[in-house]
Design a protein around this nucleic acid. Structure first.
Length: 440
DNA sequence: TCTGGGGTCCTAGGACCC
DNA sequence: TCTGGGGTCCTAGGACCC
């Protein structure tokens, strides 16, 4: 999908179409998740600090992510992919490999291209946002082709043309080659895919280690027979929070870690899993990051057990100079729990349930949090004016633009007090208007 | 007003075992 | 009368991806 989160927001908010849109963390330490192509012109890109994006592109709309909406749109797209083949491997909400051969598509360029073009039409019709398609004989090439196809395009790499195409490209083009690998190769005088191939496997292994070196050599010489794998079980579950301000109070650090442990277990249980290894992550004031882990005798999904393990691990970490981020994870996942049933039953009586989205947004100071937070981008409904979305808020007021995905003209803007009883948060509206009487 | 959150895979050293 | 060789598990850290 093209600039996925930003595209979904533009589809949902007609007044933002054709305009720079940045979706990501809104707070002082937020980063950009996705920038629309209009915002990229200004140099805004993913993983950039939102503060820097604001300097580069002050007129963009800065929106908080709405993952539940993106998940719904993703589900529709994945459903379309499933119609093409039983072998679909999602990489994220907005990207997947499809094994067309397993779906019975003729291995003929014209036939394959037709399937890709039809898919692109279907995605747009079903979701209101565009996707790009890369078609090739291997995962690596298909991925590179899809990158080249963006935005809103299709690229087919015909068998036999791979090496000619790949050779002159920077080695960073190859998936798995990031900044560190590229720098190591650059110091060895290797810049392009062709130069990587010429270096030879032994040299790459010497530079990068056994697995990475051998793997890169294979890819650079066009060898990639990795299969498309349909469903892979998660191997770990983790949650983490960056705090608006560094935590220095040890008791507060312990409290936040316990909360994270509960959230992590909530997600673990929701997935019907349990795990044996508990990991905590601490990022300090200076961004130095460490992890500590402990492996239990058997898998658990007991919040008290995870909380206690996390607390033990924290005991060995110095946090006096300030904590920027805390995280809790569980790995070594199993589908079942083989813990003492007594202990589980006892814990179930005392442990507070901490399932995902139960708690409403907390205010920053964590005080008496009766104040509603109107985060930019979220949908609202007004008793008289109908559906709209938050453009911004502050100084006790919230500004709303009243429009829906299918509004023809940009909606009107109105400002209210944050406590206006006529204004309520609302669920996202579907991007494609439901057809009345369609029988669906 | 620098630097999110959720993952995967790999490496390397030490413990432990046969 | 120095130091084996493999295998697995655990821990910590790092690169990379979206």
């Amino acid at each position: 999908m093209d600039a996925f989160y930003a595209s979904v927001e533009q589809a949902a908010k007609p007044s933002l179409r054709g305009k720079p849109v940045v979706v990501g963390g809104i707070g002082p330490r937020g980063v950009v998740a996705t920038a629309s192509y209009e915002a990229r012109v200004f140099g805004v890109h993913s993983a950039m600090a939102t503060a820097q994006a604001r300097r580069l592109c002050p007129n963009a709309a800065y929106l908080t992510p709405r993952f539940s909406l993106y998940q719904k749109v993703s589900g529709v797209v994945m459903g379309l992919l499933a119609e093409l083949s039983p072998l679909v491997e999602p990489l994220s909400l907005d990207e997947a490999f499809v094994d067309l051969e397993a779906g019975g598509v003729e291995p003929d360029p014209a036939a394959v291209r037709a399937v890709g073009e039809r898919l692109r039409r279907d995605i747009l019709a079903a979701t209101g946002v565009s996707g790009s398609v890369g078609l090739a004989g291997s995962k690596m090439l298909a991925k590179i082709a899809s990158e080249q196809a963006k935005p809103d395009g299709l690229v087919l790499i015909e068998p036999g043309t791979e090496l000619e195409l790949l050779g002159p490209m920077p080695v960073r083009t190859i998936p798995g080659v990031g900044p560190a690998t590229a720098e190591t190769l650059r110091r060895a005088g290797i810049h392009t895919v062709a130069e990587t191939a010429e270096a030879g496997e032994a040299e790459l292994v010497r530079l990068l280690g056994k697995a990475h070196g051998a793997g890169l050599h294979a890819l650079a010489t066009g060898h990639d027979d990795r299969p498309v794998v349909a469903e892979r079980d998660a191997k770990s579950v983790s949650v983490e929070d960056t705090f608006a301000e560094d935590l220095t109070d040890r008791t507060r650090v312990q409290l936040e870690l316990a909360r994270l442990a509960d959230r992590c277990v909530g997600r673990l249980r929701a997935a019907g899993r349990s795990g044996r290894t508990v990991v905590i992550k601490v990022r300090r004031y200076d961004f130095s990051t460490l992890t500590r882990s402990e492996t239990l005798r058997g898998p658990t999904d007991d919040p008290a057990v995870v909380r206690e393990a996390a607390a033990r691990l924290l005991a060995g970490v110095d946090t006096t100079e300030g904590v920027r981020l805390l995280g809790v994870g569980v790995s070594g996942l199993a589908d079942y729990t083989q813990e003492d049933l007594f202990a589980q039953a006892a814990a179930a009586e005392t442990a507070p349930e901490a399932e995902g989205s139960a708690a409403p947004e907390r205010t920053e100071d964590d005080g008496a949090s009766s104040v509603r937070r109107w985060l930019p981008g979220l949908d609202v409904v007004h008793r008289e004016l109908g559906r709209g979305w938050v453009q911004g808020s502050g100084l006790g007021r919230v500004t709303v633009r009243f429009e829906e995905p299918w509004s023809v003209v940009p909606g009107r803007v109105r400002t209210f007090g944050v406590d206006d009883p006529d204004l309520e948060p609302a669920e996202p509206v579907p991007l494609i208007r439901p057809v009345v009487g369609s029988g669906c």
